[in-house]
Design a protein around this nucleic acid. Structure first.
Lengths: 356, 356
DNA sequence: ACAGTTTCCCGTAAATGC
DNA sequence: TGCATTTACGGGAAACTG
């Protein structure tokens, strides 16, 4: 009778932040005989933290834990979901009478995530994606008590869709296969290999202090805020392993470069260029990744235009000549350069330099 | 019996921002015979906009205004004070009984300014300063209906005190005299020349889109956030007219520079250095002022260390040699330079460059 | 149309809770 | 103690309002 509906968050539906207003719409899909009948709709919000006891969480009583004089084992935080996994829902109730017949209506929203700080938005959005990717149930609030796995083919489609939706340009085969390998190792070639929820957004990437999704989302944010034109021109290869990067660059003209996202820092982009030494040796150079702070001081296209390497006392030179495979730099980025403002002072801008 | 007291705002007392918590303390200065008598204190806030009819605001009925069929003249916003001139006050009431004697107590805070956004903080602080500089009345809420003038000697003391309080280092005679000239023209030499409230913080500086105080406060903020060590070493001359600047620099060693605040932009600092051309001509160069955005990308001391001018194809050179009058640059700023972080990448930092 | 003012809310930092 | 979560609020921008 009514439709489950969604509160709107700018760009990220189904996520509600405390202290921030949201909107929701309820439509009655039945045409009533009386036209100006006023229907009161009551809205209620389930507001209770949810606890799930996970069945496979067994512990053994151990002599080690002999703290308060008896054998004991503590089950702490048992199955307590993190805020962003906790699903809530808005319910709507209404009651009306037509021709002596009283009808109760009730419906509810799709599961919602409630956060208290925007820092929780990436986690919340991961939950919304996972839920909507893997179930059609309208209101399974216990979903993250035991979340199902996704196949890589399902997940990769969602990831690409994130980029096309939020950044305008999706991910190509090569980019996705780098992501698959990062997430799954060698199994990525098999598209029905399965990814767990935990691997996707809870566990840290080995050796890194962030999960796969946190990393990927930080890149999405970087693109949205600082790289949109460059990204949409497809000039950012972005997701390339260092090995592939070298394979691609090694036979290229000296000064050929490509743009890739940092794998060690959140929300960073770097460029790597190839150089041919006098002895015939091929050398690869990368700059320290640019993050949102640095990109807000100087737009990325201008960094590429102005980048210089100063070897002591020698005329500084911009080593970036051709965007991989062989597009002359200014031909690719020319339109994206920002004009220098004119001032009564000597125009001074920040030029990104590497000192060797 | 009680003391007028003040809510505390970080660093800026007597200013309250809507939606932001504040604290106030009321002390009873009478010692009561019963020790654990509980005294209830009721707090009330005057919350009404205040309107003042300024007497000298006359208008003439004019045929021009013949819009609704009769001669009319509109008195709009008549004497309505701006929010930051509107003074409020917190009142405290209490009543207690000792030995059959009932005593009513009442006191109130010094006048308060209520703002709704930090962007109003400078204006609010100007009001607090002016009030406390020019009256001892504890509660003259109509003060800005007709605010008195300040002598330059009073005002300059307050201004210097702003710098010593918020930035650690006050203003010297030369700096103050530049400020006085800026505010008063040639009259500044006469220390009992009077400054109006309007000239101080309401009217724009001729040809500029901001008032004297807005300009000065933007510099205070810049110092607080980005220039504290340099300021406290007294390395920033800061308030120097361009004429004086040239007089000071022209006979100095080439490469002698000084640091001054921009007079055309809010919250900007620039450096000017002197250069001796081959033909004996003396040339002065200034960079486009650095503002908080640029200074947060690269600290000011590092800018001075790394600043380079590139004349096409020539080895870039740092033209800054001696801080006025004759301190070798690195001797002055050496301790203030920031270390470069070490990275697996080529360390790239933003270098401020002028291209000629 | 516009300027003064308030509201909105992201994002950082600090506080709190477990 | 450390980690997860919330609170606090500055600051930029949009919305409001006379």
């Amino acid at each position: 009778e009514k439709q489950p509906c969604m509160p709107t968050h700018p760009q990220k539906p189904l996520i509600i932040k405390t202290g921030v207003q949201f909107t929701t719409k309820v439509r009655l899909l039945v045409k009533l005989p009386e036209v100006d009948y006023q229907l009161k709709v009551k809205t209620t919000f389930d507001k209770s933290r949810q606890f799930f006891i996970l069945t496979n969480n067994t512990k053994v009583m151990d002599i080690e834990d002999y703290s308060n004089g008896c054998l004991s084992v503590e089950f702490r935080h048992l199955g307590l979901l993190s805020v962003t996994e906790e699903l809530h829902s808005l319910s709507f109730e209404a009651c009306f009478t037509v021709q002596g017949l009283t009808i109760d209506l009730e419906t509810c929203s799709l599961p919602l995530v409630v956060i208290s700080n925007v820092s929780q938005l990436p986690g919340g959005w991961a939950s919304v994606m996972w839920y909507n990717l893997l179930t059609d149930e309208p209101r399974n609030l216990a979903f993250f008590g035991n979340p199902p796995r996704a196949t890589w083919s399902q997940l990769s489609e969602v990831l690409s869709w994130q980029f096309s939706t939020f950044a305008g340009q999706g991910l190509n085969k090569d980019q996705l296969s780098m992501l698959g390998e990062k997430l799954l190792g060698q199994h990525a070639s098999c598209s029905d290999y399965q990814v767990s929820w935990s691997k996707f957004s809870k566990e840290n990437i080995p050796g890194k202090p962030f999960s796969f999704w946190m990393w990927l989302d930080s890149i999405l944010e970087l693109i949205k805020k600082h790289l949109l034109p460059v990204w949409n021109e497809n000039y950012i290869m972005g997701f390339v392993s260092k090995e592939t990067e070298r394979t691609l660059l090694k036979d290229r003209e000296p000064g050929t470069f490509l743009l890739r996202f940092s794998e060690s820092h959140l929300g960073g982009i770097t460029f790597t260029w190839v150089e041919h030494k006098d002895n015939g040796e091929v050398k690869f150079n990368s700059v320290e990744p640019y993050t949102k702070n640095r990109l807000s001081a100087l737009p990325f296209a201008d960094i590429i235009r102005d980048y210089k390497v100063i070897s002591d006392g020698v005329v500084p030179e911009n080593p970036l000549k051709f965007l991989y495979p062989d597009i002359p730099k200014d031909e690719a980025f020319g339109r994206l350069y920002n004009c220098q403002p004119i001032h009564p002072y000597i125009p001074s801008h920040l030029i990104p330099i590497s000192v060797q």
